[in-house]
Design a protein around this nucleic acid. Sequence first.
DNA 1: GCGACTATTTTTGTATACATTTTTATTTTG
DNA 2: CAAAATAAAAATGTATACAAAAATAGTCGC
Lengths: 205, 205
Amino acid sequence: MDVSQRIKEDILNNRLPRGVPLRQVNLSDSYGVSRIPIRDALLSLRAEGWLVTHGKAGVMIPDLHWKEAEDIYLMRAHLECLLFDMAFDGIKVADIEKARGITLRLDREHISLVERGELNWRFHEALYQAADRPTLHRVVEGLNKQAVRYLGFQYGPLGYRARSQQQHKAWLDMIESKNKSGSVDFLHQHIVNAGALLTDYLKNL
Amino acid sequence: MDVSQRIKEDILNNRLPRGVPLRQVNLSDSYGVSRIPIRDALLSLRAEGWLVTHGKAGVMIPDLHWKEAEDIYLMRAHLECLLFDMAFDGIKVADIEKARGITLRLDREHISLVERGELNWRFHEALYQAADRPTLHRVVEGLNKQAVRYLGFQYGPLGYRARSQQQHKAWLDMIESKNKSGSVDFLHQHIVNAGALLTDYLKNL
DNA sequence: GCGACTATTTTTGTATACATTTTTATTTTG
DNA sequence: CAAAATAAAAATGTATACAAAAATAGTCGC
């Protein structure tokens, strides 16, 4: 597996020290590669929001914060609905079937958080790609990737998993029945609800 | 100057080949540094949208496209207004003065396009920082940085410079007079107009 | 004992060298 | 002659070694 992917997993599972800057040599030792691929990984992870620069030298794992969660879900609510709206008329039966296939894989219990995050994104992506909007797509993808860090709360303490799956299926049916404004609104609610649930939880932590 | 900054300048001024993948050794030769800092720069530039990966090996300078411009300005219209709205009540006189100072520097003729882009962003940033929303701020910053590639059209063929400056000053006055909804609407129009102008131009190129 | 300055150590940045992968050109075979 | 297989090249990925910068510890003067 790619080094940056392994680092992501380790950040999610709190296997990397928080609050102190990560040192390239340490990482180099623990992952058994030289500093060059570590540097590459750190640069990419910083760009994706998994790490933040800490002063002049060194990167840190940023603390989870309700403000970040709220921002991510606010942006998703705006941009993802925009993208979906642009995609709607071009969505093919095959796209819906592809998305349905992914929900089945999401029903399994024994998949890691990053995999779950990846599948969740791929589910949405299957329905957005018809928009043919690379730039908007890329930003929305970035937001979904960032949200992965918060998925642990939603699928853990908040028990959001079943509800999310249920909503996904209902949404697919609505799309299938060609109800555009309904589907867009549904997506908006889906995102806003998830965001509100998460944000409130984080605020009262 | 930093290598990645120099590459940005060279992309803007068409000093780098378009349509063919950039080779690390070539860049290494032309910029007089080894491949390592080139790799670092390419990774960062790719994350910022200045480059796209081209198949398995090599990165390319993406063509300018009206769809990208439209997406960027659509997103800016949504997110930047959101951010500004959050900032508004916290904006201090000092922030407005800072922004005003930047408009004066933007009035000069002899500054490069990247500098102009940088200043333009710093102008807006001065008014957004009061929102204290790091995540949203970072995304909006990314969009503004991406938009720099299209600035050449706005300040060149479209002659947008004078109008933009004029709007900036009017906007500052409106903010100063504590007219919140008016200021937010004004910003929205400012962005939508600039986007429409640019997009139409690119479509008919 | 406290603060400024200096020396040491740690850490990141960069260059060079090598390994691996990918692409291109060549050859072989039907 | 065309297509597949193979050999050569060119390119990226990675490791090691060194240089520069930053952080830390220690020392000196007051």
